[in-house]
Design a protein around this nucleic acid. Sequence first.
DNA 1: CGCGCGCTTGACTAACTTCAAAGATGGTGG
DNA 2: CCACCATCTTTGAAGTTAGTCAAGCGCGCG
Lengths: 231, 231
Amino acid sequence: MQAQIARTAPEFRAPIFRPTPPVPAFDLEPDPFDTLGTVVSVRAGGALYAEGDCATHWYRVTSGVLRTCKLLSDGRRQIDRFLFAGDFFGFEPEVEHNFSAEAVSTATVVRYPRNRLDLATADNPRVGVRLFQITLAQLGKANGRLMLLGRKTAEERVASFLLEMRKRSSFAAAIDLPMSRVDIADYLGLTIETVSRTFSALKQDRVIALPNAHRVTIIDLAALEELSGDV
Amino acid sequence: MQAQIARTAPEFRAPIFRPTPPVPAFDLEPDPFDTLGTVVSVRAGGALYAEGDCATHWYRVTSGVLRTCKLLSDGRRQIDRFLFAGDFFGFEPEVEHNFSAEAVSTATVVRYPRNRLDLATADNPRVGVRLFQITLAQLGKANGRLMLLGRKTAEERVASFLLEMRKRSSFAAAIDLPMSRVDIADYLGLTIETVSRTFSALKQDRVIALPNAHRVTIIDLAALEELSGDV
DNA sequence: CGCGCGCTTGACTAACTTCAAAGATGGTGG
DNA sequence: CCACCATCTTTGAAGTTAGTCAAGCGCGCG
């Protein structure tokens, strides 16, 4: 693979902070985090934090879509996750963020201070357990992506991606893809051309329909699952 | 990429269970896990558990080296992690194991029952925190591998791998590679031929020396770091 | 000593990338 | 409201990396 040189630099617009009423950290159970959150808005294309920033907070998506990604010095980019409403992110093993977080579409997130988290954890064992569960779920998903990036073909990657997006759209037949082809490519370890060509081929084969570039309708789900390579 | 068809099926030898004295779960701090562990030995090539097995336990490596991996139906394999002394593994978000765990070299591990873990966690908040930290560290490493598998060239992958093994060998110049070329290939998302050719090229360029197939000496560390692509 | 397995090397091929250009799309201002 | 422009997407053709197929080497073990 040859270097793919620096694509349009992300616009580093300052996030908008607003004073907010307390926001619950987890909606499934009452929690001592409930009073810790602050709402933050980020415009489409804006950065919430950059790789290397001090990881003073962690976050949960309220609305909109974000991405976490990493750059190599020559501009090659790998997207780690797409973040949708309800997703947690910003947990880091180190002091610094290993990824940058940017808004794919205008988004609101709730921000939790990391230090107060430590205090809450000391008080309540359930907090630690909950964090453990969340991190474990993320680890499971990250591990699933290793197979995709290491061993799957372009077609399998795209099919897997569409199925993942379908899952995140509550299994609707019509899927909205808020991210660009560049984002999809950088998520799947491919180029935009390969992603585009693969979409076209799937359309040609009547597996999917493309009403427009950011809308996919699954016509033949069984075929798509077959193509995804996951048994 | 074309399918790489089924390599030698892993030998499913039954693990050897022995009654053992209590083994501490974490060596950095006293912990309520200290009395929960059981020592298990696995012969080189043997499986500790398989993908799909019920995840009743989690583990820590005492000695030897293991690998966790996943297979596609056509035999393509992705190795998730190589596990060395001190490493924890077997944590799963689901009821079932998402990976199989096999011994690269004859290994001993300590096995902790998952249900007793839950009890210990309820009693002691530090347990949850510790688990959170371990999982977080694993997540950080998994995420680092996404860039490697999604965006790096064969040479960058091999260089990164050697640097990782160096780190795991306490930064010694002479590195022991207990795993086969197949394992390295499946860890890096390459073929054995590409791995072998890349080793040969690095040797040719006097970046490394290869006293034998399982021994690497780093001659030019700066060059290797440069080649790894990590800035 | 010879056999077998794993590693290396060579020649060729395929998949994906790169380079290039045309075709949509959407937002803005006249 | 429509035209224009910038941006994103699609498509085509050529190039490159890594994969596939195949053969030879070498180390370790019986």
